[in-house]
Design a protein around this nucleic acid. Sequence first.
DNA 1: GCCAACGTTGGC
DNA 2: GCCAACGTTGGC
Length: 156
Amino acid sequence: MNYWLFKSEPDEFSFDDLKKRKKKTEPWNGVRNYQARNYMRDGMKVGDLGLFYHSNTAVPGIAGLVKVSKAAYPDPTQFDSESDYFDPKSLPNDPRWLMVEVTWEADFPSFVSLEELKGDPRLAEMLILRRGNRLSITPVESRHFERICALGGCLG
DNA sequence: GCCAACGTTGGC
DNA sequence: GCCAACGTTGGC
């Protein structure tokens, strides 16, 4: 099993929004970065767990847990000229962008703020904490994942 | 294939 | 709203 971090701006789509979705599931569309796409394509398997991170908001941090419920497949928004995510250079017979689907898995009894993540020496090497990191999807080491779950009061 | 210019991200 | 950091673009 692999672990991941999914960034989302809560003003656009929050962890609570996910919980309110039908089947608590949402296609993770709109990823337009090759490295993030490759993580989805090459690394993500159904059943992998993810940390749902709120970015670009007053108190950034991790709101809860999601599970990858569908493996990578072509993101239809790349072919939709009405969509913000439309990519005229992507061809239907050779799609450039992929997405997975994520499903709500568990709330964190306590939100784990970015400040808290930064303050924990055990998490110092996390990709998300590296300067200038802007990837919307990053892999998470199991030791980091477990530590963050403990901070959030999840999974015993 | 270099690299300057540009647009975006995201914490603060 | 500022701005540092980064990815992408496109002229050469």
